[in-house]
Nucleic acid binder design. Structure first.
Lengths: 113, 113
DNA sequence: CAATTAATTAAGGAGTTGCTTACATGCAGA
DNA sequence: TCTGCATGTAAGCAACTCCTTAATTAATTG
């Protein structure tokens, strides 16, 4: 009965594995069954199941059962807090706008100069 | 001779601990010695030393020795990649690039539609 | 009902993490 | 040089991670 880690730690920990990141990336294409999800990995089904459990615990996916298939859906809300933390420590909301400026200047340059 | 985890995994893993996140937050106030850094934590010095090693391995801090003090400095570069990953999966990159496209189209004035 | 398919749970093992206490190192000043 | 302060390394331990294979649950179909 130990009280587990905080939410943010769970999210970062979930992201700290290439397989799990790849799973999340693949889920951007839309809800997917565990079988389809597991297909490209050189890893047993149970291993994937366990990765999904970690992602679920972090709130990054939702699993719904239809017949014998479990459909996994991406939930991005937990990433908001993670994003906020990282951006706060980068202190660079600006970088994005710098990029925008750069692209705009680039484009202008074609006509101006 | 095992090849360790990739950089991004190291960064997320480093962030997956509240003590380490707190250390990074404190370092935003400027370079700090290990002793000052350890002071607010209910944890032995070696424990802090080990957390610092994890942060250093992820490239998130730099340690320089001056006399008998080790000064820790925040390095935010590794957060760029982490940020990019998270933003890409929040779907916000898309929103921003949509905005960018819009602005570019506006500026060009001559593209299709 | 039995066989097949999809996925999870169970058990176990090698390696890692996060802490501890004890010891070592390295610099500074009396 | 001896003393003390700042820090790191070593060794040990409980808990957790990431994988495995074998057994289990649950729904579909013959």
């Amino acid at each position: 009965m130990q009280n587990g880690p905080d939410e943010l730690s769970l999210v970062f920990q979930a992201l700290a594995d290439p397989t799990r990141r790849e799973i999340l990336s693949r889920l951007r294409g839309g809800p997917t069954t565990v079988g389809e999800l597991a297909e490209p990995f050189a890893m047993s089904r149970p291993a994937i199941s366990q990765h999904l459990k970690v992602l679920e615990r972090a709130g990054l996916i939702e699993r719904t059962a239809t017949a014998q298939w479990r459909t996994c859906t991406l939930r991005t809300e937990p990433l908001d807090e993670a994003s906020a933390w990282v951006e706060r420590h980068r202190g660079e909301w600006n970088a994005r706008f710098d990029l925008l400026d750069e692209r705009l200047r680039e484009l202008k340059g074609q006509t101006d100069a």
